[in-house]
């Protein structure tokens, strides 16, 4: 009787198992890399109706975030500015720029400008700006260096792990309240009240009883 299977077939089961292990590894790595917010969201920079530049208005003109996002310390929502906010200046500066036509039209008609939403937590998550901003957490921790962006891009993942990394260790991320909107502030280069940042932050967290929620109901309420 002739052989049906060649001799090498004896190794085949083992080879198949090894291949499956390699396959599993590759698929896991790929999912981990591609199916998380670090890939799906970071870098999202939609085309806006007006090519508004934070780099120009914040870094060059020195406007504070709160000039436009004026409710960020008062409410849970950091509002986008009204058309009048832009017209404060653009009624006199660049009054005939075609780029600003939608702003002028919105100011005249009262219809809002349709800015495209960039950062958004799912509806099952509760998020509040004022609790963070009034506890010395800077915009830069969650939005990146907005002051250098010509076009706003999603810089951090804003995933649950990202929130918890900070909630478990707020010390590293707090700063004096008057520096919250100063995105160039660097904790390593300054002394606060004559103390290095780590020492100051430990006291700040203790004195203000800062205890960010880590239980599910804190954010999923």
């Amino acid at each position: 009787m002739s052989k049906i299977f060649p001799k090498s077939a004896n190794r085949l089961p083992l080879q198949i198992i090894i291949f499956l292990i390699v396959l599993l590894g590759v698929v896991t790595t790929a999912t981990n890399y591609y199916a998380t917010p670090k890939y799906t969201r970071v870098g999202y920079a939609p085309v806006q109706p007006v090519p508004y530049s934070h780099a120009l208005h914040v870094d060059k003109l020195g406007l504070d975030c709160r000039y436009c996002h004026s409710n960020v310390e008062k409410s849970g929502v950091a509002n986008l500015p009204t058309a009048q906010t832009c017209m404060n200046c653009h009624s006199q500066v660049r009054t005939d720029s075609p780029l600003l036509a939608p702003v002028r039209a919105a100011y005249q008609s009262g219809e809002p400008i349709n800015w495209v939403r960039i950062h958004q937590v799912p509806d099952y998550v509760y998020f509040n700006h004022s609790v963070h901003v009034n506890r010395g957490v800077s915009c830069v921790s969650c939005h990146g260096q907005i002051n250098q962006m010509e076009v706003v891009a999603h810089a951090k993942s804003l995933s649950m792990g990202f929130c918890l990394d900070c909630h478990r260790n707020p010390q590293a991320n707090v700063r004096p309240l008057d520096q919250v909107t100063n995105l160039n502030w660097n904790a390593d280069q300054v002394k606060i009240d004559g103390k290095p940042h780590a020492e100051w932050a430990a006291e700040f967290v203790k004195n203000n009883k800062i205890k960010p929620p880590q239980s599910c109901t804190g954010c999923h309420r």
Partner: peptide
């Protein structure tokens, strides 16, 4: 990761 894009 991290490259910018304009689609949702």
């Amino acid at each position: 990761r991290g490259s910018t894009f304009t689609r949702p």
